[in-house]
């Protein structure tokens, strides 16, 4: 994964960069399986390595596939990134350890979800139960966001009227 990231930063050929982005997604998906998040891994594999890659390639074919070699190699971005990274690392020192069953995140509502989901919804997949039932509002919001994004792209790229006019002009 680290190597993939390094190549993404270094390469100037956008085609390769996009492909590496897909590989990165696939690696992330396999990592999610290891971390017990099968639903998430499923989605990441289908979305990241499938649809998003195709969309990126389609967009690439509409623009250029070669990045202009950066004229400004300023030290400032690197500095900003390093400082932010250091601050974040400092912040992690107080975080609960990996896999700790007593971490605050495991104490709040999650045990209730796991304990009650079967009895209340008869759905063994807790992720689905939480997604659609306990947090129905969230999911409704997400669906509306997807809807809005779809409409937005339609507005930006769907040029039905202009296309028709062009077709008429040609005839």
């Amino acid at each position: 994964m680290t190597a993939t990231i390094f190549m993404i930063v270094r390469l100037h050929n956008l085609f390769a960069v996009v492909m590496l982005g897909g590989i990165y997604s696939l690696l992330a998906a396999s990592m999610f399986v290891v971390l017990d998040a099968v639903d998430v891994a499923f989605t990441e594999a289908a979305v990241g390595a499938g649809i998003s890659l195709v969309l990126m390639l389609a967009a690439l074919s509409l623009t250029k596939t070669e990045e202009k070699v950066a004229s400004r190699h300023g030290i400032l971005p690197l500095l900003v990134v390093l400082v932010t990274g250091a601050a974040l690392i400092y912040g992690t020192l107080d975080m609960p350890h990996y896999g700790d069953p007593n971490a605050p995140i495991q104490q709040h509502v999650a045990p209730t979800y796991v304990a009650d989901a079967q009895a209340k919804t008869t759905v063994p997949n807790v992720v689905t139960a939480v997604l659609a039932s306990y947090r129905g509002y969230d999911t409704l919001g997400e669906v509306v966001v997807i809807f809005t994004a779809g409409v937005g792209v339609m507005l930006l790229l769907g040029d039905r009227r202009r296309r028709r006019r062009r077709a008429e002009g040609r005839e």
Partner: peptide
């Protein structure tokens, strides 16, 4: 399961 739900929707969004 809670982070899974949040991230699942976040990926598609």
């Amino acid at each position: 399961p809670l982070p899974h739900v949040l991230i699942l929707t976040a990926i598609v969004v």
